[in-house]
Each structure stands twice: as structure tokens, then as C-alpha cells.
Simulated scan of single mutants.
Amino acid sequence: MVDNVDIEILKILNRNSRVTLKELGDQVHMSSPALAERIRKLEDQNVIKKYSIEVNPEKLGFVRPVFINVQITNPNHEKYLDFVAENRNFMLHHYRTTGNSNYLIEGAFQSTEELDNFLSKLSNFATYDVTDVVHFFF
């Protein structure tokens, strides 16, 4: 069972998963061994599923951020999902959705030409609507 201390630990780890046990312990008023045991339990319970990094796509040259609402034209989504797997490097996130679209892609491309090529290939599996991102708020 997750308690208020666990929630505070998760909030801090969510902001900075590389925080040291000492720094984290100072913030939640726990010793490093006690804190390490709490984190291990959160991992064992699959509350903490993984540790990851968040990159700034613009710093990597991906200056065309977009959201793409995808409507699958074929009831079999397998070919579309294969396409997604093959083009994973263009996607920050990929969601299964409800409503007018089946999926939402949060993508980032290095150029308009790269985005156009991606959309041309996507049109073999689906129709789509693209929303350009004007500004990132990190």
C-alpha cells in the first residue's frame, strides 16, 4: 500500500530520478537504508516501473514537433503497429485513444520534408490530422 511518504518520494523521483539517496532522504526525513528499502518495495510492487530520461528534441535537431491524430482505415491494426515500431525514432509518445481517432502520436521531425515523408507512409494505413506545436514548455 502506498502512503504519503511514498507519494512524496515518487514526486521527487519524477522531477529528478538521479537524485542521490542522501539528498532524497534529507527531503523526506529518512535514512538512506530505510529509503532504499521503500524504493525497492515500490519497484517490487511495480509502482515504479522504470527510470528514464527526458530529452529536449530541439537540442537534437528535431525542430518540427507535431501531434498526429490517427484514424485507422483497416480493422486490422497490425500493419499500422508494425509501421509505428519501424518509425519509433520519430515518436516521443504513442497512445491508443478513444473518440474520433484510434491513436495519437506525439512526434518530432528534423525537417518539413522528413515529416512529409513520414505522413506519406502513414497514409498507407490511416487517415490523420496534424497539429503543429508552436512552443515547448519544459
Rank of each mutant, 00 (worst) to 15 (best):
M1Y: 12
M1H: 14
M1R: 13
M1C: 12
V2M: 14
V5A: 12
D6A: 03
D6H: 13
E8I: 03
I9M: 04
I9R: 09
L10M: 14
L10D: 11
L10I: 14
K11R: 15
I12D: 09
L13W: 13
R15F: 06
R15T: 08
R15C: 04
N16M: 08
N16C: 06
N16E: 09
S17L: 05
R18W: 02
V19L: 04
T20D: 12
L21W: 13
K22L: 10
G25R: 04
D26Q: 10
S31C: 05
S32V: 10
L35W: 05
L35C: 11
A36G: 11
E37G: 01
E37D: 09
R38G: 02
I39S: 02
R40W: 06
R40N: 10
K41A: 07
K41I: 08
K41G: 02
L42N: 06
Q45Y: 13
N46A: 12
N46L: 12
I48R: 08
K49A: 05
K50H: 13
Y51P: 11
S52Y: 13
S52T: 15
S52K: 12
I53P: 01
V55C: 05
V55Y: 14
V55R: 05
V55W: 07
V55F: 15
N56L: 02
N56Q: 04
N56R: 03
N56I: 07
E58S: 07
E58P: 00
E58T: 06
E58D: 05
K59Y: 01
K59N: 10
L60M: 10
L60Q: 05
G61N: 03
F62I: 01
F62N: 03
V63F: 06
V63Q: 06
R64K: 11
V66I: 02
F67H: 09
V70D: 09
V70W: 09
Q71E: 07
N74R: 10
N74T: 06
P75D: 08
N76P: 08
E78V: 13
K79Q: 14
Y80D: 03
Y80K: 01
Y80S: 01
Y80M: 01
D82R: 13
V84F: 12
A85Y: 15
A85E: 15
A85N: 15
A85M: 14
N87W: 03
M91D: 00
H93P: 00
H94M: 14
H94K: 10
T98R: 14
N100G: 15
N100H: 06
N100Q: 08
N100V: 01
S101T: 11
N102W: 10
Y103M: 02
L104C: 09
L104K: 06
L104Y: 08
I105L: 05
I105H: 04
G107Q: 03
G107N: 03
G107T: 03
A108G: 08
A108D: 01
Q110A: 00
Q110V: 00
Q110Y: 04
S111A: 06
E114P: 03
D116H: 13
D116C: 02
N117L: 11
N117H: 13
F118I: 08
L119D: 09
L119C: 07
K121F: 03
L122M: 02
S123C: 08
S123G: 10
S123L: 05
F125R: 04
T127Q: 12
Y128D: 07
Y128C: 07
D129K: 12
D129A: 06
T131P: 00
T131H: 09
D132E: 06
V133G: 03
F136R: 05
F136G: 00
F136S: 01
F136H: 08
F137I: 14
F137A: 08
F137H: 12
